[in-house]
Nucleic acid binder design. Structure first.
Lengths: 151, 151
DNA sequence: CTCAGTGCAAAGGATTTGCATGCCG
DNA sequence: CGGCATGCAAATCCTTTGCACTGAG
């Protein structure tokens, strides 16, 4: 249950800039701030949480920039148990991990899977996708349950 | 990639009735129709798809009854890649399975995992949850990618 | 009779978009 | 200078809710 390690901030910025550029987008100050905010946390954040942490950020800019970052593959949208969208850094900017989702409060917490199991899983998924004529981009694995705080 | 087998219709009705009763709810005609509709499909359906298949069903009744069925554990809400909620029968009324989600069209398709891998996965998840002080109710595993039709 | 279930229409709320302005390139 | 990014506020659209009616028990 060790939290995923975080790549160097510099690397994150460089990768983010590259992915944005590849998508024909700029790495603006606002977008940099969003990325920084997501680097500093160990779990996906809701828009509300992001707005609370970034002073002077317009709600529409948050949505718009997160959409841009998502299309560019810098950020990933996480769907939990409640109706709020949550965001985290995409693969390559964070270690591969999964989520514990509390069905009571909607909170989402990161966790990593035993590497051995992860490998077995990926191989099995590769087979399934191949058989189903499906081009896999990624997979997501979530645990639904009740967290300590809500129990 | 064999589709999950479907429990007998009679069993589904009996189980649904039991779970509803346990939750203090009735198994009305409308609810029976919803369950029947979900039994007849091999993938989660959106509200729109359900309304199209059930003639004379009010949108509000669909939402309301699906909410009741979800609380009673008869139906499960599936979140895909688009903004539409999808519904399928809950565990026990269908074989345990996972989803292939097309990021292009949002379509969701069911698939089952190699039992051996599934077992290893569940055991690993049990460990994680235990270590994280989290009471697990279930897990969900989705493959995100592009389906044949959209490729 | 009573009360939950149902339809219709209006309300709700997260997310998106139009438009004018400001800033980076 | 030109075009994209940003704020503000209005519009969207899935989903939920209020209310009156109907049907099951």
């Amino acid at each position: 249950m060790a939290p995923p390690t975080t790549p160097e901030l510099v690397d994150v910025h460089r990768t983010a800039a590259e992915r944005l550029q590849a998508d024909g987008q700029r790495f603006t100050g606002g977008r940099r701030t969003l990325v920084d905010t997501l680097v500093r946390t160990d779990r996906p954040l809701t828009i509300a949480e992001i707005l609370a942490r970034v002073d002077g950020l317009a709600q529409s800019s948050a949505y718009r920039n997160l959409a841009v970052l998502e299309r560019a593959g810098v950020v990933r949208r996480v769907v939990g148990a409640d109706e709020f969208a949550r965001f985290e850094l995409a693969e390559g900017l964070t270690e591969h991990h999964h989520h514990l989702i509390c069905s009571a409060c909607g909170q989402v917490v990161d966790f990593a899977l035993d590497p051995e199991v992860e490998v077995a899983l990926e191989s099995a998924l590769g087979r399934v996708a191949h058989d189903g004529g499906f081009t896999v981009e990624s997979h997501r694995l979530d645990l639904l349950g009740v967290c300590d705080a809500c129990a």
